[in-house]
Simulated assay, not measured.
Amino acid sequence: MSVWLPSAPCTPGTCVEAGRGARVRGAVRLVAVVVLVLAGIAGSLAARRLPGALVRGWARSVVRASGVRVRITGAAPGEGGLLVVANHISWLDVPLLAAVRPARMLAKREIRQWPIAGPLAARTALFIDRDRLRALPATVARIAEALRAGQAVAVFPEGSTWCGREHGRFRRAVFQAALDAGTPVQPVRIRYRTADGAPSTAPAFVGDDALLTSVWRVVTARRLVAEVEVLPVVESAGFPDRKSLARAAEVGS
């Protein structure tokens, strides 16, 4: 088991709903998503820093193009240096967090090799090698440096994706960066539902699921809704250690 990747019991065969949508509609949505991601790559290459409103609008467009409605509720996210933490279910979680607050994403090193999304992540992400325990202090230090510089850093502290019906505990290491930098933590809760409000596991990207398989399941699904709840900011200064800060910021799915 990887240091950064605790095992989750969720697997495609036992947890994920099979898609039953139209293939033609799915193909149209898939093309739209690819076009938008390519546009995002082009924009990030053309400008060193894009306006936050533009990034939020682009991120919402990616999710909507995949056929998923977006509902964002709760408080406005904090400004300046901010550690954004959320439960992790799907690849859709990344643009959903960007729709709330554009941030540098803490991402596994393997994402660099992903088609289309990899080059975009390489422009903004902080990459980690989850198989090297010795890399942990340096990773925390890089996050703290970004926070001190007034940047937002987005992290999925569960360390693995879950199906949405179950969730993991927040691993505490990254919370040390917020303590070291003296910056607040912004918890965000993500849920996926059908249009009638029932929980849906169709967007889950779990176990040995292939990325393209997961993407196709989403774009062919019908009437999915992503609910994003921005919870009150947790001030790191009020906590004596990273364990207590992680527990205070933990959100369930």
Rank of each mutant, 00 (worst) to 15 (best):
A221D: 02
R148L: 13
R20N: 13
A249K: 08
G164L: 08
W114M: 10
D241G: 06
L106T: 03
V185Q: 03
A39I: 06
L38T: 12
S66Y: 05
L83R: 01
F239D: 07
A18S: 08
G26H: 04
W114Q: 07
V251Q: 02
W216V: 12
R169H: 09
P12R: 10
I41W: 08
A226W: 00
R223K: 14
R69P: 10
R242Q: 08
V174P: 00
V28G: 07
L96E: 02
A86I: 11
V174H: 00
R101W: 05
T161C: 05
S66I: 01
I143T: 15
A181M: 08
V28L: 15
Y192Q: 06
R104T: 13
T14L: 14
L106K: 00
S44P: 00
C15Y: 14
P9A: 05
E17M: 11
G21F: 11
S7N: 14
R142S: 15
I111Q: 06
V188E: 01
V84M: 09
R222N: 10
A27F: 12
A103E: 03
E235D: 14
P232C: 01
S66F: 01
A42Y: 07
A181K: 01
R48C: 05
A149C: 12
L38V: 14
L106D: 00
A135I: 04
R191Q: 15
G43Y: 00
A121W: 05
A122K: 10
V185K: 01
V100S: 02
A181R: 05
A146R: 03
L30F: 11
F239T: 10
Q176R: 11
L82G: 03
R132H: 02
S214M: 13
P6F: 12
V34F: 08
T14Q: 14
R189V: 02
A195L: 12
D129I: 04
A248S: 07
T213N: 14
L92A: 01
V16M: 08
R165E: 04
A125K: 02
A47P: 00
A202E: 13
G67M: 08
F156H: 02
D209I: 04
Q176L: 09
W162Q: 01
A221H: 02
T11Y: 06
A86D: 03
A249R: 13
S44L: 06
M1D: 10
A103C: 04
G182V: 10
V234S: 12
R172Y: 11
S160W: 09
S253F: 08
T124M: 03
A173R: 02
G207S: 06
A47V: 09
V16Y: 06
V228A: 07
V185W: 00
H88F: 06
L97G: 05
G182I: 09
V55P: 00
A39T: 13
L211K: 12
A248G: 10
